[in-house]
Structure formats: C-alpha cells, structure tokens
Design a protein around this nucleic acid. Sequence first.
DNA 1: GTATCATTGAAGCGAACGTATGAACGCGGG
DNA 2: CCCGCGTTCATACGTTCGCTTCAATGATAC
Lengths: 205, 205
Amino acid sequence: MNAGSTKDRILDTAELLLARRGLDATSLRNITSAAGVNLAAVNYHFRSKDELILAVFTRLVEPMTARRLALLDALAPDASLEDVLTCLFRPALEMAKHKALVARMYVERPDLFQRIFETHLQPSAHRFASAFGQRLPELTAMELGWRMHFLVGLTIHTLAAEPILRAISGDPAPLDNMDTVLAKLVAFGAGGLRARATTRELAHE
Amino acid sequence: MNAGSTKDRILDTAELLLARRGLDATSLRNITSAAGVNLAAVNYHFRSKDELILAVFTRLVEPMTARRLALLDALAPDASLEDVLTCLFRPALEMAKHKALVARMYVERPDLFQRIFETHLQPSAHRFASAFGQRLPELTAMELGWRMHFLVGLTIHTLAAEPILRAISGDPAPLDNMDTVLAKLVAFGAGGLRARATTRELAHE
DNA sequence: GTATCATTGAAGCGAACGTATGAACGCGGG
DNA sequence: CCCGCGTTCATACGTTCGCTTCAATGATAC
C-alpha cells in the first residue's frame, strides 16, 4: 500500500493510526494489516509495541527540535521576545499534521513521553530558557520556568484541541492558516511572559 | 472497602483508578475488585463502561462549573480582568486532585469530553466570554475566542502536567500551594489577554 | 548451483477485555 | 408467611489483544 521497506511502511502506518485512534486503541494488527505487512514484522523490526511507538514519536520530534534550534541560532542578538517565541512555536505548528499523536503520547503514555522529553526536548528547553531570560531579566529562574510551562500548555493544547478550538473561535478550519495561529500564539505568549512577576518568590526559596 | 452504596463505591473507585491508570487501561474488573463489588454491578447500575466514565466525570465537573458561576456572580461590576480570571482558574485548581482524570478524558475520549463540554462547560464559557469582552472591548469576538482557548490550554496543561512542570520550574511540589499557582496563572493569562490584537481579522471575516 | 542469513508468512498461545445471563439474596407490604 | 422486586452473585460467551513459533522466501556470497 505504501512504498518503501517493511520497516518504513510500519512506521508510516503506525504514525497515522496511533494518532487517529489512540495508542491503546490501535492494535498491532490494525497497523500491520493497514500497512500490508505481516504481524510478526513489528516484533521483528521493533522489539515490542512500546518501542514501535517510541520510534514513531522520535522520528517526529527530532526534526522539530532541530528546526527550533536552527531558527534560534539564526536569530539576531537583538531579536525581540516575539521573535524567540516564533522560533519556539513555528516548528511545533509545522507538525500540526501530527498534533493528535503528540497529545496522545503526552497523556496516554507519560512514561514514554518523559523519555522523549529528556532526550530530545529538554536540551532545547534550556536554550530557550536562556533566550527568554536575556529578554526578561526581571524574572527569577523559577518564575520563568513556570511561564515556559505555560508556553508548553499553549502549544500542546493548540495542537490537540482543534475541534473545541473550532467551537470556541468560530473559525471553521482554525489550524489551516498557520501564520494566523502563529501570530495569535506569539501575541498571547508574549503578553503572558511580560506580565509582572508574582511576588512570594523570595519567601519560597 | 468503602462506605456507601454499591453504586457510590463504584463511582468512588472508578474515579480513583481511571485517573491513576487511564481509561482504557483500567478494566471494569480492576474497578469492581478494588471496590469490593461484583463485576456485573457496573452493567446493572450504569449501562456500560462509557456511561460509568461519563457519570464519574459529570460528578466532578458539575460542582466546578457551579462554583465558577457563583464566583462570577459574586463579582463587583467594576472587578478587574484578574478577578474574572480568578473565578475561572480557582475552581479548576480546586479539582487538582482530579487533574489526571481531566487530562485523560480530554485526550483519550474526546467524544465523551465533548458531551460534557457541551452540556456543562459551554454555557459557563459564554458567561465568561461576556465578562472578558466587557473588559477587553478592543478584541473581536473571534480574537477573544482564540484567547479563551489559550486559557483552556493553560488550565488543562497546568492540571495535567505536574511532573514535567516540576522539572521545568524546579518546584518540588508545584501544585501544593494553590494560591501560588493561581497567582501565576492569573498573571500569565491576564498578560496574554491584554496583548494587542493581531490584525488580519477583517480580511478573515 | 548452493549455502547463508536476514526477512516475511500463517497460525496459534494464553490472557484479558466488555458484556450478558439466570439464579440467589434481602426485605418491605399483603 | 410469602410474594415481588430491586439488587447482587457466580459464571460464561465471544472477541481481541500482544507476542511467539517455525516454516517459507529471497537476495547475496562463494
């Protein structure tokens, strides 16, 4: 049904079905029959269903992180906060095709997500934290951590919640125009980042 | 093991296990054996696993919505944007105990979440949209819709992602001090809401 | 041509799932 | 006393799951 090797066909089909129907709900039989390969091929090329899922997800996340860092590196030193946010959000929106899989990984298999997060997302998170910190010197590290957490929430939620987003915004195909979404995300994120810091930090440390 | 009727014991135990292990991953046998009731009791009191899940979730969401609206009603007409956000976020954080279940419902069973959203969340969303609209008159309805969507993202993500949040913020028990989290959420949300509207709206309508 | 070895194929394993069934139970009203 | 009814019980059905087994296949090296 697809071109490519058996292994690639499995990866491609798994990517599609896992995102569409969920991790638990998609059986290896669903994947292999849709891919036109034998069931046993999964346990041959990958060792288990979990490792297949990890392989699928890694293949998605790696280019996104690379693109984020490339955009960040290409930024002028005096670039604005909005520019940095764009480096963060644009590669995420570029994988909007795979939004459902990201969200499912995030909630259905936090253990697997955690492994990906530590190996692929965490390093770039530090890069962005320092870029934000330079432009928001009045924030403590902890306050900035919280706000970056909120940025993650914006990203994942925007990727994941297209139907509800449609109901709220009235836009019939809200994720189709990436630049529009990006502008709204950047505006909201920058506003949130620039909010005056909550106090209580000193009492907390 | 629990007090109360069989039906209540099922609800209590299901609430716990569904949140802890996930919707698909928790079997009716897990629930009934932990609750000390017979397997068939589930299909007697509820008609199916789906309707049990709906009953559990409804029991959580209803008081939250009621509390949100009560707080909103008690607000002075000249209350600030931050005050309105507090009405929105505080009841959500008060159900932090059940954060995992909210997130799981949201991603694993969007169909069920949608039903709850339409019957229990949507009406109060309109109330809040109007409260926000009064205080942000320069925003179009659609722009406001987008930003309320971002608020939902902040809420759900904050409820759902305690472990990652811990890693980012460095706070060892980030959700324990509700007032601290609330202040950060309100500050970030207000900043995002107040950001200057992105253009392009007229070309879009 | 034949040996080799990575890959694929068909079939089946035991286990767990959601749901259904019909008998037993407990208890208030005749 | 016992009937009727809401509830609980043990048990089983049919399905699907992840994973395994082992024989067949096919390209490559000699």
